[in-house]
Nucleic acid binder design. Structure first.
Lengths: 208, 208
DNA sequence: ACAGAAACAGACAGGTGTGACTGTTTGTTG
DNA sequence: CAACAAACAGTCACACCTGTCTGTTTCTGT
């Protein structure tokens, strides 16, 4: 019966379409579970339930849990890059305001569930060589993509000798602060972020 | 029979001594397992094996896994503080050299298995309210202890208005960088650390 | 020395998650 | 439209972990 519950005739879907949708559903569900339950409590059962597909479908596309997670890593990386790039356009023209805006945008990214999911994977990869190998390759790409946008965003300062190390240190500080969300009160972390950001802006301003 | 395999007479141990040693063995083993296998793969079975005690002894001292981990949190915090304070003495008198040395010492601490274990707990606490509650109380103490040594180490600059936010940002950056060890090549992370540290020293020097 | 308590030892049962497996539906190819 | 392959559905068995329970040893107070 090629009709839905409402009687709408449903056109035949090609094999590729079918597999693409269920694969996407499974990968999205994996990331959601990662963000919600953490890697420690990530089970294929939960993923299957959330994705709304059967156990058989899951095992068909991803024979083992490792393959599912490994693919999810790639999927997540693409999403992170996308989220990052989407926050970049429409920036103020004044350079000072632009830097301030970008810092806040990066901070926002680090408060999203996508960062939580990524962090779960990073930590898990420490004790899981297979996962680590998957991550290493992907993170390389993410880092390169992120690094490549620097010069286009700040054409006038990107050539400064300290630019790259400042970017590195800034990103590290944001990551380290984002980590504190996990154990500290989120509001207190946000306060610390505003203080830290103010200092960063001062330092950047002095550099000119 | 109160003799060992070598025939050495073993003196009677008081109940308190007995329980203290096995408790310590269990807590140490828990932290080691945390560092080696990660929170996701932490099982009471492994802890018991590593501690060299029986399952019955474990369940006697820590009826549930949650209690074992919760106590291990406190145990770990004490160890971290101790490790941190132990690295502090015998510092150069020149302030510039002293800052440089301290930065390296803090970095070393963040490369130790104790940091790995702590990070496992932080990440796990995100999705485990019970664990989070245990951690919050303890981390508060750790933070206060660490903060309290600042003024004694740098009496002449600690009163500067930016001191606290600079310390915060520095610690955050170190944490964020340490995190990268989990996925990146450790050597490359160390290189980035040296670059970052050089920048930090420049910034601190400018502040004077 | 003896009774009771604390510490310790090890077996058992219940629950859960993964991978393997068999059967069914849907789409593709000639 | 027939034969084949891909996609999907769901059950089963095995392994593992936790908590409970019973029995034994070691200490302590009297």
């Amino acid at each position: 019966m090629a009709t839905t519950a409402t009687g709408t005739p449903r056109r035949r879907r090609t094999q590729e379409e079918r597999s693409a949708t269920t694969r996407a559903a499974l990968l999205d569900a994996t990331i959601e579970c990662l963000a919600e339950y953490g890697y420690a409590n990530l089970t294929t059962t939960k993923v299957v339930e959330r994705a709304g597909v059967s156990r058989g479908a899951q095992v068909h596309h991803f024979p083992t849990k490792a393959e599912l997670v490994s693919e999810a890593v790639r999927h997540l990386a693409a999403k992170r890059v996308e989220e990052f790039l989407q926050t970049m356009p429409k920036l103020p023209s004044s350079e000072e305001k632009r830097v301030s805006r970008i810092l806040d945008l990066i901070w926002e990214v680090h408060k999203s569930p996508l960062f939580d999911a990524a962090l779960e994977l990073w930590v898990a990869s420490r004790t899981d060589p297979e996962l680590r190998a998957s991550l290493a390759a992907v993170e390389q790409n993410v880092a390169e993509t992120v690094a490549s946008v620097g010069p286009t965003l700040f054409p006038d300062v990107a050539s400064r000798p300290n630019f790259q190390s400042d970017v590195d240190a800034t990103m590290a500080a944001i990551r380290g602060l984002a980590l504190m969300r996990f154990v500290d009160d989120p509001e207190s972390v946000d306060r610390r972020w505003r203080r830290t950001k103010r200092r960063m802006l001062e330092i950047f301003a002095d550099e000119r």
